[in-house]
Amino acid sequence: MKKKNDSRAPGHGAIYITVTAALVGAAALSLLVGAVHLSPAQILCALFSPDSSTAAAIVRLSRLPRTAAAMLAGAGLSIAGVLLQGVTDNHLASPNIIGVNAGAGLFTILTLHLFPTAVLALPFAAFFGAFAAASVILLTAGRIGFSKTNVILAGIALTSILNAAISFVSLIDSDVVAAYNFFSVGGLSGIPPHTLAVPAVLIALSWALSLLLSRKISVLCLGDALAVSLGVRVRFLRAVCIILACAAAASVVSFAGLLGFVGLVVPHIARRLVGESTARLLLCAPPLGAAVVLLADTLGRTLFAPTEIPVGIVMAFVGAPFFLALLLGRQSNA
């Protein structure tokens, strides 16, 4: 049981500094570790005064995009998780719960089925699929009411339908299954740098707008009745937050595939570090998520080198036990 005299607000500045330091460390590790051994001096030289050497090419064309992708994936999914868990008042909500990932998956497998050679179109298909799923959720919740339970239930129902559609397409076209399997576990290898630009802008916009709305989101977390009493337009705010969460999550899906558990696990860790103030969560969770995905990716690349384990599988190994521990914790508190 928590004691009141233990419950004084800790210095959050120290936590932000630690998380930022962890992110910088994880990014440095991600740049250093790889199939080809490169010294820190070579990495720094490649970053700040690039030449035509092989080391510079490896860093600028392979490791730097991969590091940036991991950071973007962690940050984007964490923002989406914080927003969804906040506005649905459900700490088990995440982008894959409300159907965003399944929507992206269905559009990807449909693209593979209809246009087998259009590999470059896959990220865009994922992007539109995620938004289409979010739109269906918004329309459904708009008709039945934007309560936190309705959004979650509509998401679960939609996810079931989308997963059934994915299975159906897999049945009628077995050729797409192999390509889809890679996409469905989530991975960061071979991402062209130019595909990160649009997701980076969308994630940054989602983050900035979420921070602007953070006070209102904190009020919404007190319950709909209190939020209305405090002058918040509850339905509008919930819809805006879901759109922002979808933009951030879909951006990640478009280049990293269906990377699960980040949006669920990272907001929980951040909540334990800085409490439930939405502003503080939005400041802590993105760098923390970036560090977690960077470390998971580095682990996946090195654990069984030269065989690479996709980051989605590593995250599932970490995230699933965490999810179970969470459920067990809730059970023991009930």
């Binding site: 904190s218 009745a225 209305v228 405090l230």
Partner: peptide, 26 residues
Amino acid sequence: LVSILPQTLHAPHITVRELVTLGRSP
């Protein structure tokens, strides 16, 4: 003009001062 305190109240992990400050939201 009107403030309402409903019957069911959440117990968020924020400080009392932060909670009271949310009252200034309007």
